[in-house]
């Protein structure tokens, strides 16, 4: 297969670059016992600290601790005003990219998070990169979400989405 001869315009537009660092809308996540148990079950945990409040307290936790990868559940309210989904995606690349893969996630824990906690979080795009790989041209979008409890940062999640 021969490479295209004409130089392609970059996927990343100036409008996209302008979104780097701009904090998105703040959302609220509840960490509650039922969801901790449901998440623990879905990821196969058998340690009773994720299910039994007495076991959690006996092990020194305030309440059921969050299993790795769980940072609360956003509150769903069908009556709340909805954002236009295309607006929520932000400015789009110069050529349409149909597929999306999760390229990776890192969570930094700055405090223990347990059932009963209410977290607020806001996400911003921290980096945009275009590259070529085995799956063709790719746009790698890095975003950071900062989770706070009573104003204190308790976790920072950094995610990479690959669009291609």
């Amino acid at each position: 297969m021969s490479a295209p001869t004409e130089a392609k315009e970059p996927l990343i537009t100036p409008e996209m670059r302008a979104t780097i660092g701009v904090e998105g809308r703040s959302t609220t996540q509840e960490v509650d016992r039922t969801m901790v148990r449901l998440f623990a079950r879905a990821t196969g945990h058998t340690d009773p600290v994720y299910y039994d409040v007495d076991a959690a307290k006996a092990a020194g936790y305030r309440d059921l601790p969050c299993p790795p990868g769980f940072l609360g559940t956003p509150i769903f309210n069908p009556g709340a005003p909805r954002m236009d989904p295309t607006a929520a995606m932000g400015p789009q690349p110069s050529r349409p990219l149909r597929r999306i893969l999760n390229g990776g996630t890192e969570i930094e824990y700055l405090a223990d998070i347990c059932a009963g906690d209410v977290l607020t979080s806001a996400t911003h795009t921290s980096d945009l990169e275009e590259t070529k790989g085995s799956i063709g041209e790719m746009l790698v979008v890095t975003s950071k979400t900062v989770y706070k409890r009573d104003g204190e940062v308790v976790a920072i999640s950094t995610g990479k989405l690959i669009r291609y």
Binding site: H45, P65, P67, N102, E106, I107, T158
Partner: peptide, 26 residues
């Protein structure tokens, strides 16, 4: 992907204890 991350995290918490993790990236 996040299911694989959660499962990988379970190996870690079973080994190290539930809130020993300070950072976990995959």
């Amino acid at each position: 992907g996040m299911l694989s991350m959660g499962l990988t995290g379970r190996m870690l918490t079973d080994w190290l204890g539930p809130v020993a993790l300070r950072k976990f990236g995959v």
